[in-house]
Computed example of a mutant assay.
Amino acid sequence: MTPTPLPRIGMQPVERGDAARNRALLLDAAATLVAERGVDALTMDAVACRAGVGKGTVFRRFGSRSGLMQALLDHTERELQQQFMFGPPPLGPGAPPIDRLVAFGRARIAMMEVQGDVLRAAENAPEFRFGGPARSLGIMHVISLLREAGVDGDLELLASALLAPLEASLVLHQVRDLGMTPARLTEGWEHLVRRVTRC
């Protein structure tokens, strides 16, 4: 059975080379700020300073802080999407579907260490929490892997249930407030997947 094709998130017109480089420079600066000081440090001024450009450049590029955060989230999700669509196994094609599903969860949990606060902020925006492109893509990818593995039942509901433990707000609460380690979370994710799919 041919897997359902997945949509590409955040599709945009092709940019000129210098525009694409400037965008990547700004997003890398934003990601570094979040990694070093948390999402509260992600201001237009701070990104401009870190990237070595004027604040007007950041505003022209992203419009607002929320636009910058969405672009950063999209940037992060694109990287994950590239890995699970075209990267090496077990996250990418070539591994058994349940192994790929386990690797997908592990990759999402690993993302939280750097992008968790940005993901949490996006989850808290009503328009993105359940209907955003990143979540829709994740649901479709999980459904595709479950179908490929021969799992039956309501795959859409099952995919939503499986993705719930990977929400940034929950993962960050478990790590920061409850003291759980990322290793414990990834082991728990694999256990859940194999129990639910009986694989």
Rank of each mutant, 00 (worst) to 15 (best):
G132P: 03
M140Y: 03
R60I: 11
R120W: 03
E190Y: 11
G17Q: 11
T76C: 13
A24V: 14
S160E: 15
A95C: 05
R198G: 07
R120S: 10
G17W: 08
G116P: 09
R78W: 10
D40R: 11
A122V: 04
L137T: 06
M112N: 03
E156A: 14
V171C: 15
T186F: 00
A19L: 12
G63F: 13
P93G: 08
G94M: 02
L178A: 05
I143L: 06
L158T: 11
G131N: 12
E79F: 04
H75Q: 15
S136L: 08
V58R: 06
E187R: 03
P182G: 00
L42G: 04
M111H: 15
L137N: 10
S160A: 14
A29K: 04
A30I: 02
L145F: 07
Q83S: 12
V142T: 11
D45H: 15
E113F: 00
E156T: 14
A125Y: 08
A24T: 15
P88G: 12
L26S: 02
Q82D: 15
L172D: 05
R108S: 05
L68K: 10
A95L: 04
G132H: 06
L101P: 01
A121E: 09
M111K: 13
A51I: 05
S64A: 12
M85W: 03
I143N: 00
E123S: 01
D45G: 15
I109K: 01
Q81K: 03
P126M: 04
A46Y: 02
